Simulated assay, not measured.
Amino acid sequence: MRILFVCTGNTCRSPLAEGLLRIRVHQEGLAAEVRSAGVSAITGGPISRNSASLLQEAGFKEPLSSLTIQESEVQWADLILTMTMGHKRTVIQRFPHAMDKTFTLKEYVEDDEHVLQAIEERERLVTEVQLKQALSQSVSVEERSRIYQLEVEIPDYDISDPFGGPLEVYRQTAEEIGSSLDKLVIKLRKSREEQ
C-alpha cells in the first residue's frame, strides 16, 4: 500500500503524518510506503521546526522536505489522505481521476456506522443536486434541508493547522493525527490479514 498525505504547504501536518505513520509501519512490520505533499507547497523547502522536533522526539530520524503535489505523486499513491476537506476538494479538482482514492484522514478511518451511512447519503444527494443544477433543473427545499441535516450529523474531519503556533499547539495536532493513524494501522493490519 502506498499512502500519500496532503496538507497545504507540506511543512506541518502532512510531514507529521508521514513520519508518525512510517514509525508505526516499521514497528508493525506492515508493507506500506508513505510520502507527503502539499497543495500549495514549495518543493525542497524545510518542514517546520516544531514538526521536525516532534518527529525527532518520536524517534523519526530521516530528514523531510516539502513537496508540491503533482501527477507523479498522485499516480504513485494507492491512497491519498488529506488533512482537511478543503485539501480533499483541491486534490480532486486538480486530479479528478484520483477521486476514488482520496479521503480526509479522519474520514477514511471513521468507524461509526451511523456516520458512515450519513456520509454515503450526503455524497449521493450532493451528486444528485449537482447533476440537477448542471441540467438547469430545480432543487427542492427538502433536498437542500436533508443535505444540511446530514452535514450537522457528520463530524468535522479537518485536522487543526498548527502553523505559526508554539510547540504545544503542534503537539496537540500531532496527537490528533496520531489517534487517526492508530485507526489507520488497524485498517492496514486487517487488509493484510484478508489477503
Rank of each mutant, 00 (worst) to 15 (best):
V115P: 12
Q149R: 10
Q27G: 02
A98L: 05
S14E: 03
E194W: 11
E176V: 05
H26D: 03
I3A: 07
A41C: 04
Y108H: 11
P155N: 06
V25K: 00
E193F: 03
D156T: 11
H87E: 10
L67G: 00
L55Y: 00
S48N: 13
E193N: 09
N50H: 15
R189W: 01
G44F: 04
A17M: 06
S191N: 11
V74S: 10
P63T: 14
R189Y: 01
Y170Q: 08
I186C: 00
L64V: 08
H114Y: 12
R89Y: 06
H87W: 07
V34K: 03
T8G: 11
F103A: 06
L30A: 00
V39M: 07
D182P: 08
V129W: 01
V6Y: 02
D112Q: 14
K106N: 08
K88L: 10
V115M: 09
I186S: 02
S66A: 13
S180Q: 06
E28Q: 09
F60N: 02
Q172S: 13
G38K: 07
G165Q: 13
S14A: 07
Y170R: 13
E62V: 10
D182T: 14
I42M: 14
L105C: 08
T173F: 02
F103P: 05
P15F: 06
A32Q: 04
L30N: 00
D111F: 01
G19S: 02
G45H: 08
P63M: 08
E194M: 13
K88C: 01
G165V: 15
L16C: 08
R192H: 10
M83G: 05
S138I: 03
D158G: 03
C7T: 01
V109L: 06
K190G: 00
Q172T: 14
L16R: 11
S191F: 05
I69P: 09
Q172F: 11
N10L: 07
E121Q: 14
K101V: 07
A98P: 01
G45N: 06
S14D: 08
V126T: 15
I69H: 01
Y157F: 15
I23K: 10
E107I: 07
Q195N: 14
P166H: 05
E193G: 07
V91M: 05
V91R: 06
Q137I: 07
L135W: 07
Y157A: 01
I42T: 12
G178V: 01
P155H: 08
Q75R: 15
Q137V: 00
T102Y: 03
I23P: 07
P63V: 10
L55F: 02
R22A: 06
L67K: 15
L181P: 04
F163A: 15
E62C: 01
L167Y: 11
